[in-house]
């Protein structure tokens, strides 16, 4: 039986983090796990690296004593996003790390962190080309069959004439 005051999380490579359960009161995943499987020794969080989990837990620790009501939905329009200087670390991090933190926030179901990282991702998309966005966030590729390898319309010259 694990200590109910603490929770141990295990990352993809077996690294463990033991933190006060109260830190993770905004994580729906953890809260559900505590209710259903709290007697187990540790909770495994697949696809989350130690570095990222450390960052997530830092976020949780910083906000552990926030008195605001936990967000039910990161898109809740009644609770507009307000930048918090304590979260500046997320604004300066590289794109690939930001993507991993977004994924981790989603896996752990922490709406406040999802909203923070999504907001940051949106600000980085501003003014970018599709190629730049792909390079930043590596979304799944467009299906090959969607892509027309050649421009069927031909090119229109400066004088408006159509040439193949």
């Amino acid at each position: 039986m694990s200590d109910p005051a603490n929770i141990t999380l295990v990352t993809m490579d077996g690294t463990t983090f033991t933190v006060p359960s109260a830190y993770l009161h905004r994580s729906k995943l953890v809260q559900d796990w505590l209710r259903s499987e709290g007697d187990k020794q540790a909770m495994e969080v697949k696809h989350v690296t130690p570095f990222v989990l450390q960052g997530v837990l830092n976020f949780c620790e910083i906000h552990a004593e926030d008195t605001s009501e936990p967000l039910a939905d990161p898109a809740d329009p009644t609770k507009p996003f307000e930048a918090d200087p304590r979260d500046d670390a997320f604004r300066g991090m590289p794109d690939d790390q930001l993507l991993q933190f977004t994924m981790a926030a989603d896996i752990l179901q922490i709406p406040e962190l999802v909203r923070l990282t999504a907001q940051e991702m949106a600000s980085r998309i501003d003014g970018k080309s599709p190629d730049q966005i792909r390079a930043m966030f590596n979304p799944d590729d467009l299906a090959e069959e969607d892509v027309d390898s050649d421009n069927e319309m031909g090119e229109v010259g400066e004088e408006g004439a159509i040439s193949k």
Binding site: G14, T16, Q41, E44, D106, L108, Q109
Partner: peptide, 18 residues
């Protein structure tokens, strides 16, 4: 909150872990 390399008895969370 220092990480430890260990292999405790773990359960994979069923809710939302992809």
């Amino acid at each position: 909150m220092e990480p430890k390399q260990s292999s405790p008895s773990t359960t994979s969370a069923e809710h939302g872990v992809i």
